[in-house]
């Protein structure tokens, strides 16, 4: 099983999918000669040419919409939006068109479209370039939203997204592009709509997605040293949301903490907490807590940015408090 970065896993999968299916094409700003703002598409223009790897002007609404229209005629475009912040310029096409066309026309035409885009703060990019707004898309029926947390998941989910007949938003993460991990060479296709227990444990359920899964795993590792077994659940699919896996876990552990990189109020964690209280109310020994970004436009200055973003210490603190609240650990 080769070890590679998240970036390499995405690139290799793009290459394989371009080779496998002549209807697959890449569309986006600076993905060709520039090889992608984050170099995901490095070498692909050279290998596949401008027909398959299409550079666009800076016109998110236009080229996302064009990809939707091409998908309606049976092509399978993979669009790169430089970062999720710029997807706001294409919000109308994603929400009012990609998500609606299948249902609104009575199931007569599907939209086999993939939108790849990274979220993530912590790069000192300031308020407009550091948002985690995947919630906007996770809110919308008709879209599927995937958030891979490892190189293996990135490959398997991208493959699933390309082969799916619905519009899929693949949430990448700036902070994960250089992360490394084993990627099976069996060309696995992820199942959309499924969460995964990535570390079993019986004392507390820690729930995250994308970058926060690795933060959660570090926290679990830390607690394991003192004999506390934390179960880590990777949401993987933000829409559809696998409520059953979450609730099943919390029913066993009796308490839960959600780790999210977005803002807390109305955020993804709010939906998770609501799900848990409805599905595991009688099993809860402590309130469900959420660890999330401070509710400010993310500042540029490093100490401020660091303070605003959730980290291992924040998560460990809240896990500790939650465990105490269950009165199962030393009072």
């Amino acid at each position: 099983m080769p070890v590679m970065t998240y970036r390499q896993a995405l690139r290799e999968t793009l290459r394989e999918e371009l080779q496998r299916d002549p209807d697959v094409l890449l569309i986006g700003e600076e993905i060709g000669a520039f090889e992608g703002s984050y170099k995901i598409t490095e070498g692909l223009l050279k290998e596949f040419g401008p027909r398959r790897v299409r550079d666009t002007p800076i016109a998110e609404e236009g080229f996302v919409g064009a990809a939707i229209g091409a998908a309606m005629l049976g092509l399978r475009p993979i669009v790169e939006i430089m970062t999720i912040n710029f997807s706001l310029l294409a919000l109308d096409q994603i929400v009012n068109h990609a998500a609606k066309i299948y249902g609104m026309f009575g199931g007569q035409t599907s939209v086999p479209l993939v939108i790849r885009t990274p979220g993530g703060g912590g790069q000192q990019l300031g308020a407009t370039h550091s948002q985690n707004i995947e919630l906007y898309y996770s809110f919308v029926p008709g879209l599927k939203v995937l958030a891979p947390s490892t190189p293996a998941e990135a490959a398997a989910m991208l493959r699933a997204a390309v082969r799916d007949d619905d519009p899929v938003l693949l949430l990448e993460n700036l902070g994960l592009y250089n992360s490394r991990g084993q990627v099976p060479d069996t060309a696995e296709v992820a199942e959309i709509g499924r969460a995964a227990v990535v570390r079993p444990g019986r004392d507390l359920t820690l729930i995250g997605y994308s970058r926060m899964v690795s933060v959660a795993l570090q926290v679990a590792e830390r607690f394991a040293e003192s004999g506390v077994e934390i179960e880590v659940v990777d949401l993987r699919s933000l829409r559809p949301l696998d409520r059953a896996t979450l609730v099943e876990s919390v029913r066993r552990t009796g308490c839960a903490v959600v780790a999210e990189d977005d803002w807390l109020t109305y955020g993804i964690g709010a939906e998770i907490a609501a799900t848990i209280q409805e599905g595991a109310f009688d099993h809860l020994d402590a309130p469900v807590r959420r660890v999330a970004m401070a509710e400010v436009p993310l500042p540029y200055a490093k100490p401020l940015e660091l303070a605003a973003l959730p980290n291992v210490t924040d998560l460990a603190t809240v896990v500790e408090q939650t465990l105490r609240a269950t009165r199962r650990v030393g009072a």
Partner: peptide
Amino acid sequence: IVGGQLPLAVGAALAVSY
């Protein structure tokens, strides 16, 4: 949605051209 069909039509023409 006013204007929504335009990018889609461009994409359809892109598919034809492709």
